[in-house]
Nucleic acid binder design. Sequence first.
DNA 1: ATAGCTGTCTAACGTTTGTTAGGTCAACAT
DNA 2: ATGTTGACCTAACAAACGTTAGACAGCTAT
Lengths: 222, 222
Amino acid sequence: MKTRGQAAALQTDEPEESAGDRSRREILDAAARFLRSHGYHATTLRDIAGAVGIKAGSIYYHFASKDEIVAAVMNDGVDSVFDAVQAALRALPKTADPRRKLEAAIRAHLHALLDRSDYTSAGLKAYSDAPEAVRQAARPHRRRYEAVWDGLVRELVQADLTPRGVSREAIRLAVLGLMNWSPEWYRPRRHSIETLAGEFAAILLRAERMPVRPRPTAAQRS
Amino acid sequence: MKTRGQAAALQTDEPEESAGDRSRREILDAAARFLRSHGYHATTLRDIAGAVGIKAGSIYYHFASKDEIVAAVMNDGVDSVFDAVQAALRALPKTADPRRKLEAAIRAHLHALLDRSDYTSAGLKAYSDAPEAVRQAARPHRRRYEAVWDGLVRELVQADLTPRGVSREAIRLAVLGLMNWSPEWYRPRRHSIETLAGEFAAILLRAERMPVRPRPTAAQRS
DNA sequence: ATAGCTGTCTAACGTTTGTTAGGTCAACAT
DNA sequence: ATGTTGACCTAACAAACGTTAGACAGCTAT
């Protein structure tokens, strides 16, 4: 049932991708691009096929239905941002300041959403339009990812870094909503993901903005 | 902008709604409901007509195209939440605490989005899927509404209630994103709009949560 | 050489979509 | 009585949709 990574654990070399595997991957890539920019209903199998260089009917050699493609894209998208955030958190020392963890997670999420993976934003956009069966298949992936943020928020609350009297759920909904709405307004030329991540983290915390440790243009005040 | 209030004022000076006007309004109401829950492409003229009790072709007596309906719903939706927020702000004394203004605006926005008007949420959901012509027609309405929030954020910044070093734009995008994502997770049985409004306002501000003031007549200004 | 598998093609199918043309029928004005 | 208008209907149109069946070229293994 896994869509991609299964051959990754092969013993010696790279998976030796066959022609069929490459087509299958290209179909998913194209589907993710169309789903991201046009949504579920406006993404047609003929569009996808055309982008891959084959005919619409040929898709059915690789997938049983449109919804199977959509489900694969959506689940890969959630797993992808899950992995990205987990990796970003693991790159920090376990005892790191929860504020830094929050900012790292926000940065990873925004990167996945806005410039790294069509899959993540495709899943986000197509979810509410997809048939119930597809959404149901995606639910475990989504829950697993939400749990990451719930843990993060829990740490913040325990460190007393969030406004008092605000439920953990509200904070999680706030941070996810704030990020997930960004595809609606983000323009690569106009916004910097790095800057946005820092600003969003600062907004969500009670305390002042964190000291600027690694880089860029953060201090235009003072 | 009136959303429902069917025979609100039977007085002599009311417009005397004709049968055609009522049909037109019912078409828009039904379109808003479908657009809200199913989005642009999954909302069909036959669905709308069926909900009103007429046939699909008859819609063209009232509207020139599907997109004209969508544009009307979208623009009414933005104007509706604009009016609601403006009214909520005007109900406050001009010199009111900016924190209170923020909370009032958030509450009004959430109410418009989640339980008062199908139009507002319909416009939000359908916007990115609608043809460019429809989006272009909606842009002035959206800009006017954004300006309200920009003014609100400006007040907050001037009162030093926001984290320092964070741009006004980031704050505005944060608060709007946080609210506009709520249709994705809000469940009326599970969440309370009043509570959410207070929590979101608290999250966005540097200071502690505001004291719960029982009555507005007290002079709290020192 | 032959058989089989892989990956794609052509060509259609049944359905649904937005839209249009022309008809119908009651209410009203003359 | 007659003509006009308002509001709706029927019936279709072309296009586009997801999907399917069957054919066909290229490769591999016998």
